[in-house]
């Protein structure tokens, strides 16, 4: 399975880690089923939609959590969240080069309401606490369901994010916004608009993901390994930098209403062509524009 987008969570792990290095923690035989889904008489999964374990990424010892978008849109419930949080606890004791999150999720699993929200909060805190300890946490986003809700915040807390053009990253999904404020506010069926707003290319051009890759598992693998090696300390100076970056973003782009406005401001003469550019070409062009 070469496409990251099409792959399941388990196929992604197989495609990204060094062959033979994978050891799953709480595998399906542990039967960690969601009691809340059972109470609602809904289908359950043996791993509750997240695969966790340890392995090697281009030789680097890493811990990995991979969400399965096919199961409840990758939404986080009590058990799934606890598995991820426990993995981060493990990172404290184990000698690892980093923690890798293969995210595909709509955020809080609404069927688990309060338990889902608290679980997402615990994941966010675990990511931040791990980074404070100097362990890089890197995320990949390139699946069908994107990465939204509180898990969008979780992704933003990571040391770095690898995305493909097909990936989407945000807080409130387009459907949620359309439900709240109507189709004029955000037409969730307008695919081009959705990708101009939350898609991989837009996130890359804004600097919300560090690396943009083609939708191929090997591309994700090498980008994730590079991200783990690069790392970045969470310290006051870096947060002050981030504060300035986000301030300037509001100042510069705050009045715009479309991704194309932002891309034009960034120097793209023909912003309408950005969605058509190959990944390499986009990266090269954006580098030139940043240097200019």
């Amino acid at each position: 399975m070469q496409s990251y987008y099409e792959a399941t969570a388990r196929e992604r792990i197989a495609g990204i880690l060094d062959p033979g290095s994978w050891h799953e923690i709480l595998p399906p035989t542990a039967r960690t089923l969601s009691p809340h889904l059972k109470a609602l008489d809904l289908p359950v999964a043996f791993d509750d939609g997240v695969v966790i374990g340890s392995g090697a990424l281009e030789g680097l010892p890493v811990l990995v959590a991979a969400q399965e978008g096919g199961f409840m849109g990758g939404a986080v419930g009590e058990v799934q969240g606890a598995k991820i949080v426990g993995l981060f606890e493990r990172a404290k004791a184990a000698r690892v080069a980093g923690v890798v999150l293969l995210l595909e999720t709509g955020g809080v699993r609404l069927q688990e309401a309060n338990a889902g929200l608290i679980a997402v909060s615990e994941v966010i805190r675990a990511i931040c606490a791990t980074r404070v300890r100097g362990i890089p946490v890197v995320a990949a986003i390139g699946g069908k369901f994107g990465c939204f809700g509180g898990m969008g915040i979780a992704a933003g807390c990571c040391t770095s994010i690898v995305m493909s053009e097909e990936g989407r990253l945000g807080l409130s999904g387009p459907e949620v916004i359309e439900t709240a404020h109507g189709v004029e506010e955000f037409d969730s069926l307008d695919r081009a608009l959705v990708w101009r707003t939350v898609g991989g290319k837009h996130r890359f051009l804004l600097g919300d993901c560090a690396t943009l890759v083609d939708d191929r598992q090997p591309a994700f693998r090498s980008a994730l390994a590079q991200a783990v090696r690069t790392g970045e300390e969470l310290e006051l100076a870096s947060l002050e930098r981030e504060q300035r970056t986000l301030d300037e973003r509001l100042e510069r782009f705050g009045a715009y209403t479309d991704g194309e406005d932002i891309w034009r401001d960034l120097g793209f003469d023909k912003p309408a062509n950005v969605p058509l550019l190959a990944t390499d070409a986009l990266i090269a062009l954006s580098k030139r524009l940043r240097a200019a």
């Binding site: 399941t8 388990r10 595998p27 399906p28 035989t29 289908p43 359950v44 999964a45 043996f46 791993d47 939609g49 399965e68 096919g70 199961f71």
Partner: peptide, 10 residues
């Protein structure tokens, strides 16, 4: 192997 899992609850 000890056990194997195939498919997804989608």
């Amino acid at each position: 192997s000890d056990a194997c899992l195939v498919g997804v609850v989608a």
